[in-house]
Nucleic acid binder design. Structure first.
Lengths: 265, 265
DNA sequence: TATATCGGTCGACATTGTCGAACGCCGTCT
DNA sequence: AGACGGCGTTCGACAATGTCGACCGATATA
């Protein structure tokens, strides 16, 4: 493989650095973080600024991400074929289930949310399109790991930090769960990522049977799970998710799979 | 001013090209569009692909925008201070007015929507965060033109294509409207951009009095405008907008202005 | 006021990206 | 079937390009 363009790699690293750090960063911070000379870093930043990818606070001189990224990110959504096909199906799923629905795809060792339908009530909700979710603890992530070898190895080599007391961290238990997901054809997340929140997810497959994305219904544990057993998670078996919800999510995922050209699922 | 980095400018031009064209583009198209040798274009695209900014369809070999842009665009929203301050105020405005609310900032000769609160009902709505609106015909755009000299000149030199029969295209009428906006302190758009849709907008000002953004309430003309006069727009006077809605939008914009450190407005 | 650090500039250097030709591949047309 | 034309990709030589580190003025700090 031929060499990639150095200045572009460095510019991308800067954008990621600015995206990671919560606050604005100064030129010297950026230069030292990437091991560059100040002059070099400034040249790249100046160009990125002229193109709208970064903005500079006039007073402090610090840099932050620019508006052009938002515009391009939106254009990405416009072109996204899977998302376009899923729009109407996910909308129906949200209405019929009464829960919020997410569409996620694999991206850089995590799940990128490319579509999010709010729960159909008046509660205040924040849009999560563009946000990342971990592979090892979310329903979307587990589905993708179970049916996509790349996601699987990504999740294995990543650090599985416990996010709640229910998070599965041991490799063997994680593997067992993925096997179960493969067998069942769907995955769940009962308070493994966020306290009080549960989710069900099913894979979207293209015409070759490859998992190209996943659809999940997410909501408060009390609504997603059956009330039986006093709500305790117990042995970790997956039987507690409401079966009608599982069926609805799987139907939705199948419908989208069919829509993108896969007649078998 | 020192020269900007050539390869970065070219990469940015490619991303914008991909964002503009609806469909995926081939390497030869991209190279010829930008006047580059195929080898050069390929080197840039290869790097952009490795960084996740573009993706390549495995079968056709064509290129499209990449998921990393969505992630970075989302990060941009996280850092956006004005948006963060406006979140709760715009939410309240949407609830009290019953209409959808947009927060826009000036970006590259247009209005970039950085926040969008859905109208609080169950109707199907598409999120417009990241979308661009024209300066000359929308309420958001006119407010920014009226109070921001840069936006003003941008709008003047741009082509004002008529979007509906009500769009103001003549320069003198546009200027007169901006003067009125400056005097009133708010702007309206009654079916000048979209048929059947009207909007009211007011500016957000920073501690120096500069307009840094605008807030708009948008909805069906029948709900935004007073029913008087049988709904015909007539002489173009702005008196038809519901006065309570104007007050609510202006109050919201003032509240955000106060929140970002401007006590005067 | 002295000082440390900031963002920004400049010019010499050689690394780096650019160019154009050539390659293998695939689909189409003859 | 065969030849063709177009596709994305690779390669190597060249010099244009981006990089580096010292330097500058302004600003914040003490």
């Amino acid at each position: 493989m031929a060499k990639n363009i150095q200045s572009l790699e460095r510019a991308a690293a800067m954008l990621r650095l600015l995206a990671g750090g919560e606050r604005r960063l100064g030129l010297s911070d950026i230069a030292s973080s990437l091991g560059l000379a100040k002059g070099t870093a400034h040249g790249i930043l100046r160009t990125l600024q002229a193109e709208g990818f970064v903005e500079q606070d006039a007073l402090s001189g610090r840099y932050q991400l620019g508006a052009e990224l938002l515009r391009l990110g939106n254009s990405y959504l416009d072109v996204h074929e899977l998302r376009a096909r899923a729009l109407v199906w996910t909308d129906d799923l949200a209405r019929s289930s009464g829960e919020s629905v997410h569409l996620g795809v694999l991206h850089q060792g995590g799940v990128l949310v490319v579509h999010h339908v709010f729960r159909p009530d008046d509660s205040r909700q924040v849009l999560e399109v563009g946000a990342m979710q971990p592979l090892y603890s979310t329903a979307l992530g587990k589905v993708l790991c179970a049916f996509d070898p790349v996601a699987h190895s990504d999740a294995l080599e990543a650090e599985r930090r416990p996010l709640t007391p229910h998070t599965v961290t041991l490799p063997e238990r994680f593997e067992a769960e993925l096997s179960a997901v493969r067998e069942k054809g769907w995955a769940s997340d009962v308070e493994e990522t966020w306290q009080g929140v549960a989710a069900v997810a099913a894979p979207i497959r293209d015409r070759h049977g490859m998992a190209v994305g996943a659809i999940a219904a997410t909501g408060a544990t009390e609504r997603i799970c059956d009330p039986e057993g006093a709500g305790d998670r117990g042995d970790g078996g997956p039987g507690r998710i409401r079966t009608d919800l599982v069926a609805a999510v799987r139907d939705c995922a199948r419908a989208v799979s069919r829509d993108i050209g896969n007649g078998r699922f």
